[in-house]
Design a protein around this nucleic acid. Structure first.
Length: 664
RNA sequence: GCCCGAAUAGCUCAGCUGGUCAGAGCAAUCGCCUUGUAAGCGAUAGGUCGUCGGUUCGAAUCCGACUUCGGGCUCCA
């Protein structure tokens, strides 16, 4: 046996002494682990002949995950030092951070985080080494006898990925390993079942903070006990941590619930009920403009507008299959028409009516209202249809998840050979319209047949193929989510990325092979035979309310002029300039511009501040100089000025920006 | 639905361990004042401290239930 081995380091073949560790190869502080072949390993790992070794830097995707996982270990160690009875769940890295689940007798209080964080800082300072130690299943079981959740994971080894999201961080398919935290004197401070890899020492954690405490079901199953989950975040530098916290602060400033109140757009009166919004005039005007533009575009694309009721007999949703699948998520039924005689005996059977959770069965009733010819297809029905879903109390969340919302819902009935073309043009239409609202970054997901499905597999395959062809034709980046479709249809979901990089699921396209059959929709083909149409469900905004919320956050309340609730505010330098501004306002109003003149007795500076806080796109200021020249002075939202612009030019500039739907 | 936390004026919040604790700023209203790009001055009005019970001589403050909100989990046609 040679005492030299040959390895490939960062693409270069090298000969090194046997026993060389990955850490020996890289003399850079930002390298905290290595990749040997496909596997991430500790820097202390001894290399074998033929290994291909790459450095893993702490700021890389893998490096951050390792950092965060190691920080989760430090969290668990700190918790067990402070709460010796705490039992360990799992502690994986997640996007932007990590968590660790604990079973403790008393739930953590938010204030406990400070104590725990202090203890963690102590552990970091101690520069404890993370030391890997392979163990047999039996030894692990003996060592972890006091950790019931870990024991459960050992029992599930190999199936860990299914055991719980994140559980694969603890146990993998291969041998079990424990990571010991070893103090500089060699004393073992703590240890945890873990596949690793880890940072070399706790001191390699540059910056972390604990975020919040929450509860989570063990192994993600609501039948299981809830554990206490502590969320934290860790970064490769103090600056990176600060940048992340700044991002969170920015997201909070943009929160649509906060902006909705600040800009007087909508509210959720407690008296009306949880998850039910009312739209104030300023929010109402934005929404109206959004809807009007959408209507216009749909009309041009060959859609026909329909209206349907908000409530319907049970039978319709029974036949469509929705009642069976979603009964618990519907408002309870209204029971009507039952009659009793004076003795209390039932004289007439009553009926149950449900608030509608979906528009599609009603649209299909319109399709069925008379005999349909293949010549009418594709028939595209469109409605802003308000639906009601009794969302579980813990999930309602502003406009994003509410109990009453409006779908911009369309259902397209077509022949089988029209399907592919129809889907392709639909997807183009959807993306084009989203662009007009100011969104530009998209990706899509194709969700295929789930385990629980109805219909024939061949039909599913055909529909899935047509959806995939549409994605390819539209040239939009997409991933396939196997088994993620609805029970009756495969679907395309379009996700958008907003101004601060967050991704939102928006539009959905579904090919429904079931409902036409369930509701017995048919058309007469050219040969006189009766045929089943294909049906496409398509929502563009999904929920108008939610889409509004997303746009509000995307623009941080500073809507482009065409959408802004107040597009122009006239600000006089003194009262005597009001008549001039009123003239200007009248000229703008002639072009449909939403304009106000601030005639309050505030001083000009205060009026500017008020308009600025309301994120009005254009302030038109007028004093003596402007009046003399029949001009106004612009102040834009970014604080820049354009003084002494003739009224005609000012009107033209504003009208132009609104017509072109540009942001300013 | 589950766990934790929260609820004081339209908004943001102060009010420590139960006893002048019902307050401040902004907003609103009224008055005075106001000529160049983010807050002029003053006065007035506004809350049975989310609701209902309980403990206590006494509850915004302690306890319970409910409602609503927030953070998560589960769910999301």
């Amino acid at each position: 046996m040679s005492d030299q081995i040959r390895i490939v380091v960062a693409g270069n073949e090298r000969q090194v002494a046997a026993g060389t560790t990955a850490g020996d190869l890289f003399d850079a502080p930002e390298v905290i682990a290595a990749r040997v072949g496909e596997t991430l390993v500790d820097l202390s790992r001894e290399l074998a002949d033929g290994d291909t070794v790459e450095p893993v830097e702490i700021g890389s995707v893998d490096g951050r995950a390792i950092l965060r996982h190691s920080t989760a270990h430090v969290l668990a160690q700190a918790v067990q030092e402070l709460y010796p009875d705490a039992k360990l769940g799992i502690g994986p890295p997640v996007e932007n951070g990590f968590y660790y689940d604990f079973d403790v007798a008393e739930p953590f209080h938010p204030d406990d985080l400070k104590r725990i964080e202090k203890k963690m800082q102590q552990i970091v300072k101690e520069r404890q080494a993370f030391v890997r130690r392979p163990v047999s299943d039996d030894d692990a079981a003996a060592e972890l006898a006091g950790e019931p959740y870990k024991l459960e994971l050992i029992g599930l080894k190999g199936g860990a990925a299914e055991a719980a999201e994140g559980a694969s961080a603890e146990v993998g398919a291969g041998e079990l390993t424990v990571y010991d935290n070893v103090r500089r004197g060699g004393e073992r401070a703590w240890g945890d079942l873990c596949r690793g890899p880890h940072l070399p020492t706790t001191r390699h954690i540059p910056a972390f903070t604990l975020m919040r405490v929450a509860a989570a079901y063990w192994r993600g199953d609501e039948k299981n006990r809830q554990l206490q989950r502590i969320y934290g975040t860790a970064w490769e530098s103090k600056d990176a941590l600060k940048a992340y916290l700044d991002f969170l602060a920015e997201a909070e400033k943009r929160d649509h619930r906060r902006l909705g109140a600040e800009l007087d757009l909508f509210s959720f009166p407690e008296e009306i009920g949880s998850g039910l919004a009312v739209w104030h005039p300023k929010g109402g005007v934005v929404r109206r403009v959004m809807e009007e533009y959408s209507r216009l575009r749909h009309e041009a694309a060959g859609y026909e507008f329909v209206y349907t009721p908000h409530i319907t007999k049970e039978t319709l949703f029974e036949n469509s299959g929705h009642l069976h699948f979603y009964k618990d998520d519907l408002y309870p039924p209204v029971h009507v028409d039952a009659e009793h005689d004076s003795a209390g005996n039932l004289r007439r059977q009553g009926q149950d009516y449900y608030l509608k959770p979906m528009n599609c069965p009603m649209h299909t009733m319109i399709f069925n209202a008379r005999g349909r010819s293949y010549r009418e297809l594709p028939l595209r029905l469109f409605e802003f249809g308000m639906v009601y879903r009794y969302e579980r109390s813990g999930v309602v969340h502003g406009l994003a998840r509410s109990r009453g919302f409006t779908q911009d819902d369309s259902h397209i009935y077509c022949t089988p050979d029209q399907l592919a073309d129809e889907l392709a043009s639909l997807l183009q239409f959807v993306l084009g319209l989203l662009r007009d609202y100011g969104l530009s970054e998209f990706r899509a997901e194709l969700s295929t047949r789930p385990e629980k499905f109805v219909g024939e597999i061949e039909d599913w395959n055909e529909a899935e193929a047509a959806l995939e062809a549409a994605l390819k034709q539209a040239g939009v980046e997409y991933v396939v989510n196997e088994g993620d479709g609805a029970f009756y249809a495969p679907k395309i979901d379009v996700h958008v990325t907003d101004a601060i990089g967050r991704s939102w699921q928006l539009s959905t396209l579904q090919v429904d092979l079931q409902m036409p059959t369930r509701l017995d929709a048919e058309y007469t083909a050219a040969d006189g035979s009766r045929q089943r149409p294909y049906m496409i469900h398509r929502a563009l905004f999904g929920s108008i309310e939610r889409f509004f919320g997303i746009l509000l956050e995307h623009y941080a309340g500073a809507f482009p002029p065409w959408l802004a609730p107040v597009q122009v505010v006239g600000i006089p330098i003194a009262d005597e300039h009001v008549p001039h501004l009123r003239d200007v306002a009248d000229k703008l109003a002639e072009h449909g511009i939403r304009v106000e003149v601030d005639t309050s007795d505030d001083r000009m500076q205060k009026k500017i501040r008020t308009a600025q806080k309301q994120k009005v796109p254009y302030m038109l200021i007028a004093g003596d100089d402007d009046v003399a020249k029949d001009a106004v002075s612009f102040r834009y939202r970014d604080g820049t000025q354009n003084n002494g612009v003739s009224v005609a030019d000012a009107v033209a500039e504003i009208v132009d920006a609104v017509q072109r739907r540009i942001q300013v």
